[in-house]
Design a protein around this nucleic acid. Sequence first.
RNA 1: GGCCCGUUGGUCAAGCGGUUAAGACUCCGGCCUUUCACGCCGGCAACACGGGUUCGAGUCCCGUACGGGUCACCA
Length: 474
Amino acid sequence: MLNNKVRTRFAPSPTGYMHVGGLRTALYTYLIAKKAGGIFILRIEDTDTARYVEGAEEVIIKTLRDTGLIYDEGPDIGGPVAPYRQSERKELYKTHAQKLCEKKAAYYCFCEKEEKDDTVLLVDVCRDLPYEGSKQRVDAGEPYVIRMKAPKEGETTVDDVVFGKITTPNKILDDMVLIKRDGMPTYNFANVVDDHLMGITHVMRGSEYLSSAPKYNILYDAFGWEIPIYITVSPVMRDAQNKLSKRHGDPTYDDLIALGYLPDAVLNYIALLGWSPGGEQELFTLQEMLEVFDISGISKAPAIFDIIKLNHFNSEYIRKMSPEEFTEIATPYIKKAIHNENISIDSIARLLQARCEKLSDIPEKIDFFEALPDYETDLYIHQKSKIDKTIAYDMLIAAKSGFENLTEWTNEPISYMLKEMAVDLDVKNATLMWPVRIAVAGKSVTPGGAVEICEILGKEEVLRRIKIGIEKLK
RNA sequence: GGCCCGUUGGUCAAGCGGUUAAGACUCCGGCCUUUCACGCCGGCAACACGGGUUCGAGUCCCGUACGGGUCACCA
């Protein structure tokens, strides 16, 4: 049924949000499967009943859909090894754990929850209990957990594609819990059982699981199962000391989207955190990543998430869009600042596309279209063009009459008129354009120049603002 | 603390025994220009430290320092 195809899985715990590191893991696992023409699976690891979050699974599914990481099997679409929610596989784990008990590779443990240090003795007691006796106590309804019987001697070598071979003496391995008192499996156990039962060939995990990996191998061996290929990735950090975390205020995927970052840009940027394609290209579509992705490019060292660089990726993606696409996604942000229906959203969008890093920057960049800010006349001073307030005043007076006589209000005539006027006045374009732009915008930095802004504002509003400027400079 | 892992500019990173140690972001100049931005040109800036091995070490080995992970009936 599962052939020899490459099968990978993204196995998040439904926490209610998708963190950046999680998305990166999803991306890599997707790439590994798809690059090999294999199957990408979504499995929900909801074994911690105490942590249940309403709607969390939907967040995961939506994120994968929005970023284009399409899975072939999953809880909502089913598949040959369903169910894909661990909570629905409870019996499976129990049966398998019991099998291990029968084989004496695991045992029933009746000890109370560990009180940190002094439990080793208690555990040891249960470890050596005869199977039959324990089984009877279990059948009689006594509460228990099932623990793995870790070997006390020898050593176990884990082979990881990223970290290489790591050998651990077995004596330091503890008898980890497989089935919890509530009957649910632990992450460690469910992961092993599911990865095998679902035919997962490449197992990607965060480096926090590296030290548990020997125990997974022992489990695979106890079952007589083939050990999958391990690919361990280091975390995405917020700084050299701390992992990126929602708790510390670091943005989740949804936060980034809400901030006006594009899904493709986010995906592209995080792909490069801890993985390098080797060449000099940095901008990749998902399809292109598929072509160049290679596990050998994954690095062992953690990478720090740098939102400044994400800004760069995002602006690249914005500039790459067609004007129509950009207008469509920018419109909601433009409308946050612009309520006047006479103002052309499309025209503003055109000005914005080359000048914004993220969509959330838009409203403050264009608010002057809606209402002229109360600006200081110092804005009229421009050292480089040798413009002072007196010159600015003269320019505005001239521009006013020019605008008044203008009959056709589109880009070309406005531009032509202003340039002609600069010639008549015997000044450089900038000497005239600068004061005009300040007068109509009321701020020194604007998307677009004087001509574009005037065109969008319309004749009446431009004259009104020019007059205000003249008054201010008097 | 034990065990494990990591360490190339501020950040992401290339490099796999011989290089003037790539590239990108940031920052700083310059050009272009009606502002800003885009674009173009240029610049600052790195192999954590100490020992080996070698003709030769960012690359291999051993220490040290620093950082991280783990040592849960959480994942």
